[in-house]
């Protein structure tokens, strides 16, 4: 491997410093006793007082619960919808309306959130005045909106796994007389499971983070956590939000890094087993 030139190395260090110092600063300030957040109160810091206040704040806890529910439902719905769509795209070749279908599965990813949110709200309003459903806006409409825009990401993840998987296993099962449904659940699903898990996580996090679309499609009684954070920080920094941010960033990083390592190990293990099997076979 060639040595990196000092210039590239410097850019790498500066770039990562730029990406991570703000998050680091936010974490450090969450232990600052001063209400002014960025003015370090050396006499009383570090302190956990903002964490204590956080867990005593019913509004934040309630919003977190709502967001968690929406995100979990969204991820599950998006995985079902996205896996079906990926299957249709990879396995069913040319079907009527395929071009439109392909467009519909990728467009939600590149569309500005403001447009997605606005258009979905207008749909819900129109539907309500036409058929009376959905009655009002809240958790249900937010979940529907989130499923719609996160399913696109699941499609991408699952599609690439489906396209590269070895189909001979399915054919073998089919030859041995397994019905298509059984082949799917016993052979295909376990093979694409890592992709589905990543898709689920991605959809969960996208839903959990979304503030713009939720602001359009949710109702007065259902303020999600990002909506609450947004309305609070619009007025400036607030110490309890730093504490909340620290918790969220740490949880997400742990889960993502952990899952990444797990999937990486599993993949390596699988490759080793395949190699071992091939070697044993050829002997």
């Amino acid at each position: 491997m060639r040595k990196l030139s000092p210039l590239v190395l410097a850019m790498l260090v500066l770039g990562f410093a730029f990406l991570y110092l703000p998050i680091l600063a936010m974490i450090v300030y969450s232990f600052n006793a001063s209400r002014l957040v960025t003015v370090w109160d050396a006499a009383n810091s570090p302190t956990l007082k903002w964490y204590g206040e956080l867990f005593a704040n019913d509004q934040i806890l309630e919003a977190a619960r709502l967001s968690f529910e929406i995100a979990a439902l969204t991820a599950t719905g998006a995985v079902v919808l996205g896996t079906l769509a990926a299957f249709a795209l990879v396995r069913y070749g040319a079907f009527g309306g395929r071009a439109l279908f392909t467009g519909l599965t990728t467009a939600p990813m590149v569309l500005p959130e403001v447009i997605t949110g606005l258009s979905l709200l207008l749909l819900f309003v129109a539907l309500e005045s036409m058929i009376g459903w959905p009655a009002g806006r809240g958790q249900l409409t937010t979940t529907i909106a989130h499923v719609t825009f996160t399913a696109a990401y699941v499609v991408v993840v699952v599609q690439s796994r489906l396209a590269t998987m070895d189909r001979s296993l399915e054919e073998a099962a089919m030859d041995l007389g397994a019905r298509p449904w059984k082949v799917f659940f016993v052979v295909t699903l376990p093979i694409i499971a890592p992709a589905i898990a990543s898709g689920w996580l991605l959809a969960f996090i996208l839903s959990w983070d979304d503030v713009v679309i939720a602001s359009f499609v949710s109702g007065p009684g259902s303020t999600t956590l990002p909506m609450l954070i947004f309305s609070k920080v619009r007025l400036g920094v607030s110490p309890d939000i730093n504490a909340l941010a620290t918790i969220l960033v740490l949880i997400v990083s742990t889960v993502v890094v952990g899952l990444g390592l797990l999937l990486y190990r599993r993949e390596r293990q699988r490759q080793r087993e395949v190699r071992a099997a091939v070697a044993a076979d050829s002997r």
Binding site: P22, I23, W208, P226, I229, V233, V237, I241, A245, V249
Partner: peptide, 8 residues
């Protein structure tokens, strides 16, 4: 990690 929090 949250877009909103990173902007914040």
């Amino acid at each position: 990690t949250s877009f909103l929090l990173r902007v914040y």
